[in-house]
């Protein structure tokens, strides 16, 4: 069946970036205010699913040439690596470290190891959710 979805496709091209940027914002907002890796990841997944709806699986794969299983793996490694870092300092697992740094452009910024963990969560959520969608959608 050939459908004319010019409006959907054009809007999607625009909206995708808005959702994606918003998800990045949510991700960084995560530590002291609502947000974080999981929600950010879900938003990004939502954006990619919108792409999948507007275009087909092949086009999206060409536009985003990632292996999403590998992405899940990298995310898990990041999360586990951050948590295991504490083993080398002989403090309990998952102990998180943070400090204020003065960065160019941003000024005084508070940096946490928890953020690297959250980045891992972000990648796991996107990777696994898209893998599931692909495995259902790829068949029909």
């Amino acid at each position: 069946m050939k459908t004319n979805d010019v409006i959907l496709q054009t809007t999607t091209k625009l909206v995708f970036f808005i959702i994606f940027l918003f998800s990045i914002h949510i991700f960084f907002a995560g530590h002291y205010t609502p947000g974080g890796g999981f929600v950010g990841g879900l938003l990004t997944t939502g954006a990619i699913i919108l792409l999948l709806l507007a275009f087909d699986l092949k086009t999206v794969q060409k536009a985003l040439p990632f292996n999403f299983t590998i992405m899940t793996g990298i995310g898990l490694l990041l999360a586990l690596g951050t948590a295991s870092g504490s083993i080398f300092f002989n403090v309990p697992f998952f102990t998180h470290a943070f400090d204020d740094f003065t960065l160019p452009l941003f000024g005084v910024t508070s940096l946490h190891t928890a953020m690297i963990f959250d980045a891992g969560v972000f990648l796991v959520v996107v990777g696994s959710a898209i893998t599931i969608i692909q495995s259902i959608g790829g068949d029909s």
Binding site: F38, S135, I136, D139
Partner: peptide, 24 residues
């Protein structure tokens, strides 16, 4: 709740895939 939601999200997604395969 957040933890439980994440888990049930994962499990539901898995059963959906499985149900689809079983149906096929």
């Amino acid at each position: 709740i957040l933890t439980a939601i994440v888990i049930s999200f994962g499990v539901t997604a898995f059963i959906l895939v499985l149900a689809y395969r079983a149906y096929a």
